[in-house]
């Protein structure tokens, strides 16, 4: 019947009161912004989607809401790509009616495009680094370069798909075709979405129209971009380099 470690003292003052007395405003989290942590616009507004550690609001963990959410999304994406890769692995040998994977794959071309995507991760990280220095010009430049490298990769993929189609492997030809195009297609769509986000971001930075913390937005999209890159690292090895 005894309760575990019941405190006997009545509630003490919530620590937000002190801050209110100073004229600082708690946001919807009931958290008080840390002094001097105003962002670029000098705002201390609270607010759902853009609230977080990076915004100068203390959260329970001290971490940004957005970043936590992005990492969880990426963790979840692992299971998405895991499923697609497994489907491909299971079906790659079932290629009746088309050339086999090792006959089709153009390793030199794919190696170059993989290298391009890998280097786009470098330019992305340089963009993040520039954004954290509040260097808008370099941020825009590196983001643009990243988008261009990504577009090169997607271009190479479109070329590759066309080649495969001419050599007799369509989406509906056999199990190998369906699973190959689904896996690499999903990846390609992820890259394309990334390119759109990068270009939109460049546009918004140039017009100064980013709600919230600019460096954090760049970092968010950077995380997504790197994730797309690491998925390709896995696909490059498992799909292209290791023949069935």
């Amino acid at each position: 019947m005894a309760d575990i470690a019941a405190p006997t003292t009545p509630a003490s003052e919530p620590d937000t009161t002190a801050a209110v007395a100073l004229g600082v405003e708690p946001d919807i989290h009931g958290m008080v912004p840390t002094p001097g942590a105003h962002d670029d616009h000098g705002l201390v507004h609270g607010g759902g989607d853009h609230a977080g550690g990076e915004h100068g609001h203390a959260t329970s963990t001290g971490l940004s809401n957005n970043k936590l959410a992005m990492w969880m999304f990426l963790g979840s994406e692992c299971l998405l790509f895991g499923g697609l890769i497994s489907t491909y692995m299971l079906y790659r040998g079932r290629h009746e009616g088309s050339p086999s994977p090792s006959q089709l794959y153009n390793i030199p071309l794919t190696s170059v495009s993989s290298f391009v995507l890998l280097m786009s991760s470098l330019t992305m990280v340089l963009a993040v680094s520039a954004a954290q220095r509040h260097d808008d010009r370099n941020t825009s430049t590196w983001l643009t370069v990243t988008a261009l490298l990504g577009a090169t990769f997607v271009g190479a993929q479109v070329f590759e798909f066309t080649e495969f189609y001419h050599e007799g492997l369509g989406f509906t030809t056999n199990l190998f075709g369906s699973s190959f195009f689904t896996l690499t297609g999903f990846h390609g769509v992820h890259v394309t979405v990334g390119i759109i986000m990068l270009m939109a971001l460049v546009g918004m930075i140039n017009r100064g129209k980013i709600p919230g913390n600019k460096a954090e937005v760049v970092e968010m999209i950077g995380l997504y971009w790197h994730f797309v890159d690491i998925v390709w690292i896995v696909i490059f090895t498992l799909v292209y380099l290791i023949p069935s």
């Binding site: 971490l63 936590l68 990492w71 990426l74 963790g75 692992c78 299971l79 895991g82 790197h226 890159d229």
Partner: peptide, 30 residues
């Protein structure tokens, strides 16, 4: 890439835990 470009090596351990949970779970079930 995950440790350096995505800053997991320098960031709070929660991010690492969240991401690798998904990754390891994916490896395990598939």
């Amino acid at each position: 890439v995950v440790s350096y470009f995505m800053h997991l090596k320098f960031d709070n351990k929660i991010f690492t835990r969240l991401f690798y949970t998904g990754l390891l779970l994916a490896c395990f079930v598939y």
